[in-house]
Amino acid sequence: MQTTTETAACPECDSQITFDRSPLNGQVARCGDCGVELEVTNLNPLTLEIAPEVEEDWGE
């Protein structure tokens, strides 16, 4: 896996979210400033959206 630092803006509070390694589509992240859960929805350009609410078929 490629090692790099990438950043994208939190869609909730606009603070910068930093990824130490290349993120993957669907990767979950949490904004360190506002605490919202985010999901990577595009890699080029790196885009974050508010993660979807838990759905009924999610789990272990």
Binding site: N25, G26, E39
Partner: peptide, 17 residues
């Protein structure tokens, strides 16, 4: 395969590597 890439999936990818 995944639908959300959480800490667990990252850890597994690391171990495979």
């Amino acid at each position: 395969t995944y639908t959300r890439l959480r800490t667990e999936e990252r850890l597994l990818l690391d171990e495979f590597e």
